Computed example of a mutant assay.
Amino acid sequence: MILSHDVAGTGPTVLLLHSTVCDRRMWDPQVPVLAEAGYRVVRCDLRGFGQTPVPDGPYGNAQDVVDLLDLLGAERAALVGSSGGGRIALEIAARWPDRVVSLALLCTALAGHEPSAELRAFGEREDALIEAGDIAGATELNVATWLGPEADEATREHVSRMQRHAFEVQLAAVEEFPSLKPEFDLSAVTAPTLLVSGAHDLPDFRQIAAHLSDRLSTTRHLELAWAGHLPSLERPDAVNPVLVGFLSETFPAG
């Protein structure tokens, strides 16, 4: 199955991978800016998000994304990942290092990370609300948890719509299939990497950024004092120049 996606602009390929709180619409503020900077901008919906249906069997997110790159004829690309999308980007960069020119990871998750008490408490509260049938409450919990103080009301409503849609699509599935979890070694990542974290985010994601700074060979870590977990939505005016600058250095549009 090919992931639902759209393409804007021409030039070197930049692939945007959304947070699992959102779908590909989270990149609305970045697409025109990156296209104007000279890139072919691809964004996709992972399985069970946005316009991509839920899995119909065991699946691998990273393989899905590589299949999409193959379809688009993109032998090499820069990957920009937010949260869960960052975790997928890291897997791709480790398993197919020759295909990933640069990585920008915004408040990235990490396979195998041991969640903090705060993150576990969030997950338990979310599960309880969903089991009680309170999808509105679970959606509100996610918006309150993942957006920092700089997010305006329109952004909060936007995230709420994306998260509510994901819940509705996934909960309507007749059967739940597992995501395959192949082993990979982070030391195989060769792409220069930008790590962005937010001071108002849960501590897990700042810890992950610090850990990756030690594990990956070429990294730059930027902590944003104003940011929560979704800085590209909270203040695109501040994040867009950072992304364009990093891509211009590591994957010039020419």
Rank of each mutant, 00 (worst) to 15 (best):
L3D: 03
G9T: 05
V14T: 10
L15P: 00
L15D: 02
L17Y: 07
R25T: 10
D28F: 07
V31R: 06
A35P: 02
E36L: 07
E36T: 13
Y39V: 05
R40P: 03
V42Y: 07
C44E: 01
D56C: 05
Y59L: 10
V66E: 13
V66D: 05
L71T: 09
E75Q: 15
R76Q: 14
R76E: 12
A77G: 04
A77H: 02
G81K: 11
S82F: 01
S83T: 09
I88L: 09
R95V: 07
D98P: 00
V101S: 07
L106N: 02
C107W: 00
L110Y: 11
E114I: 08
L119R: 12
F122E: 05
F122C: 00
A128D: 06
A128R: 14
I130C: 04
G133C: 08
D134Y: 04
A138H: 12
A138Q: 10
T139R: 15
T139H: 15
V143A: 14
T145P: 06
T145I: 07
A151E: 12
D152A: 14
A154E: 14
S160W: 06
R164H: 14
A166C: 06
Q170G: 02
Q170T: 01
A173P: 01
P178R: 11
E183V: 11
T193W: 12
L194I: 02
L194T: 05
H200D: 06
H200I: 00
H211P: 00
D214S: 15
T218G: 00
T219N: 12
R220S: 11
R220V: 09
E223G: 04
E223T: 15
L224N: 05
W226N: 06
A227K: 01
A227I: 01
P231G: 10
S232R: 01
S232E: 10
L233H: 02
E234Y: 11
A238Y: 15
P241M: 12
V242K: 10
V242A: 07
L243S: 01
V244C: 12
F246Q: 09
L247Y: 08
